[in-house]
C-alpha cells in the first residue's frame, strides 16, 4: 500500500481557532480531522501522518515553518502529499501552496490541494500545485476531499490524466496536444467558430491569450564612455566547430567565446548554426549578427568604455520561452560578475 501525508491548519487540525493561529508545526501519526475522510476515500494509499501548523505561524515565520515540516518528512516514506482543502480561507490557501511547493521540490512527489476560485492561493500557486476547484466553505469538505482523493488515486495508479478542465483543477500554464474525442477536423472547427463570431454568438477560442510576461525596461546607462558593453545573440554565431554543440533549433545550450584579442569576427573562424534563416550573409561576415567590428570602433572613439571579453550565443528558432529565460538567467550571472553595464542582444 502506498502512503500519503496530509497538511492541515490549526482549525481543521483540531488545535483551536484564531487564538491558536500561531501554533508551531507538529506531525502526528495517524489521522486527524479531515485525514479520516481522505483516508477513507483514497483507494491506492493510506494516510499515515497528519501535519498541523497555525496559519499565522506559516504566514509570519514561513522559512522556519517550511524547514521544520521538511525536517519532519525527511525520515518518512510517502508517495503523495495533500494539503487542505482550504476553501476560501486566504492564509490557509497560502500555507497549503507554500508547503506543497516546498514538498514537491524537495521530495519530488505529487502535491495536491483544493481551494475556492477566489482564494488568493490559487493565483499564487496554481502553476506549482494541482489545486482543485473547491467549495466556498467547509460545508463542501466531503465533496472536495472526494475530488482530490480520486485524482490522487489516478496519479498513484499512473493512469492517463485528462486536461485540467476535465479533471477539475486550475490550469497550471501547461499546454499539450490532445486528440478530440469528437474527431472534429480543424477545418470544421475554424469555420464554425467564424460563423459564430460573425453572428455575434459566443464561441470558445482554443488558444486563450495569456497575459503578457513583461520585463520592465532598464534605466539608461549614465555614462556610456565608461561602460562595459557585452554582445549577446540568438542568431547562432559560434566558432566554426561549434564546441558547445548548440542545437540549430529548439536550443537548450548556449556558449561564451573569448573575443578580447579580436578586432572583428572572421568568416571561416565563426559562422551561424541557426536553422531558421538563410545563413549565407552571416557566414560570409559574422559581424552582421554580432557587430564586434562596429563596437571596436566605438571603443576606439571612446563612445563606450570597453567591449566585454566574451560574447554569448544561442539559437532562437523554435527555442521555448522557458529555455530562453533559463539561458538568459545563466548568462546574466557571468555578465554581472564581470560588471557589464549594458548588453546588446541581437536577435535574428
Amino acid at each position: 500500500m502506498k502512503k500519503a501525508i496530509l497538511y492541515l491548519n490549526q482549525f481543521f487540525g483540531q488545535i483551536g481557532g484564531e487564538d491558536k493561529a500561531d501554533f508551531a508545526p507538529v506531525i502526528k501519526e495517524g489521522l486527524v480531522g479531515p485525514a479520516t475522510e481522505l483516508d477513507k476515500k483514497l483507494n491506492n494509499a493510506q494516510v499515515t501522518h497528519t501535519i498541523i501548523c497555525g496559519d499565522n505561524f506559516m504566514g509570519s515565520n514561513q522559512d522556519e515553518a517550511v524547514e521544520t515540516i521538511l525536517g519532519f518528512l525527511e525520515d518518512k516514506e510517502f508517495d503523495i502529499f495533500f494539503a487542505g482543502p482550504a476553501f476560501q480561507a486566504g492564509r490557509y490557501g497560502n500555507a497549503c501552496g507554500v508547503i506543497c511547493k516546498a514538498v514537491k521540490e524537495k521530495f519530488g512527489v505529487p502535491v495536491i490541494s483544493s481551494m475556492h476560485i477566489e482564494n488568493p492561493g490559487v493565483e499564487m500557486f496554481k502553476k506549482d500545485v494541482y489545486i482543485f476547484k473547491g467549495g466556498h466553505s467547509a460545508a463542501k469538505m466531503r465533496k472536495d476531499i472526494k475530488t482530490i482523493a480520486k485524482f490522487g488515486d489516478k496519479l498513484l495508479n499512473n493512469e492517463n490524466l485528462l486536461p485540467a478542465e476535465d479533471e477539475g483543477y486550475f490550469p497550471r500554464g501547461i499546454r499539450h496536444q490532445v486528440w478530440l474525442d469528437s474527431n472534429t477536423p480543424a477545418s470544421d472547427r475554424v469555420v464554425d467558430m467564424l460563423i459564430k463570431k460573425l453572428n455575434g454568438e459566443t464561441f470558445e477560442t482554443e488558444l486563450p491569450i495569456p497575459k503578457a510576461d513583461r520585463v520592465p525596461i532598464a534605466s539608461p546607462i549614465k555614462d556610456l564612455s565608461k561602460a562595459t558593453i557585452a554582445l549577446v545573440n540568438t542568431g547562432g554565431i559560434v566558432p566554426v566547430d561549434n564546441p558547445d554543440r548548440i542545437q540549430s533549433a529548439s536550443a537548450t545550450r548556449w556558449g561564451r567565446y573569448d573575443i578580447s584579442s579580436m578586432e572583428r569576427l572572421k568568416s571561416g573562424e565563426f559562422k551561424t548554426i541557426h536553422a531558421g534563416f538563410d545563413p549565407a550573409a552571416a557566414d560570409a561576415d559574422p559581424n552582421v549578427i554580432l557587430p564586434l567590428d562596429a563596437l571596436r570602433v566605438y571603443e576606439k572613439e571612446g563612445k563606450i568604455g570597453k567591449v566585454h571579453e566574451y560574447f554569448y550565443s544561442t539559437v532562437g528558432t523554435g527555442t521555448t520561452q522557458a529555455e530562453a529565460a533559463r539561458m538568459g538567467k545563466e548568462m546574466s550571472e557571468y555578465l554581472k560578475e564581470a560588471n557589464v553595464d549594458g548588453v546588446i542582444l541581437v536577435s535574428t
Binding site: L161, P163, E165, R175, V178, L180, T184, P185, S187
Partner: peptide
C-alpha cells in the same frame, strides 16, 4: 490546412 483532429488543452 484543416485535417487536424488534434487540439491543445491546458493541463
Amino acid at each position: 490546412v484543416g485535417w487536424s483532429t488534434k487540439t491543445m488543452k491546458d493541463f
